[in-house]
């Protein structure tokens, strides 16, 4: 595995930015290049928190990312989709349809269980009903992200 995409959703929940930076650091330590796609606000939150790019080296506009994936100009080995609302589910299914990456659904927020139950295709689900405290989700990630390498 050499590269990964973190596809962020609406940054309404503070958990998203914290987990994105945590994941980016974890992947970087495993020598996996990380690209983060998201809305302007979601990317701005990351860049303000990581001004020197210690965790995230590359960011891309969400629409450009979808366009490049759809046109097969781009793909990744791993893809983590952040699901906090119905739109997140839509992006997850879209990624599943477009990409050959190993897919991870990071599902959080008050409706996490309901959204997780909508995922009826093969992917790794990392689910915790939290909107403010990232620690339980971090623990789930640590359990799931054990590479063969």
């Amino acid at each position: 595995m050499s590269n990964a995409l973190l596809l962020l959703g609406c940054p309404e929940s503070p958990v998203q930015t914290a987990i994105a930076l945590y994941l980016a650091n974890k992947l970087k330590r495993d020598s996996i290049d990380v690209t983060v796609a998201g809305t302007r606000s979601a990317i701005a939150l990351l860049k303000v928190s990581d001004p020197e790019g210690n965790y995230v080296s590359e960011t891309v506009d969400l629409d450009s990312c979808i366009e490049n994936l759809a046109e097969k100009k781009l793909d990744f080995d791993l893809c983590f989709v952040f699901v906090y609302n119905d739109a997140g589910i839509s992006y997850l299914f879209t990624l599943s349809s477009m990409s050959d990456a190993k897919l991870f659904a990071i599902v959080f927020g008050s409706d996490a269980d309901a959204f997780a139950s909508m995922i009826d295709f093969e992917c790794e689900k990392i689910v915790y009903k939290t909107g403010h405290n990232p620690v339980p989700l971090k623990r789930r990630i640590d359990q799931v992200m054990v590479w063969d390498a």
Partner: peptide, 8 residues
């Protein structure tokens, strides 16, 4: 049509 922060 889906917008990340506004839904579908």
């Amino acid at each position: 049509y889906t917008k990340p922060c506004y839904g579908t």
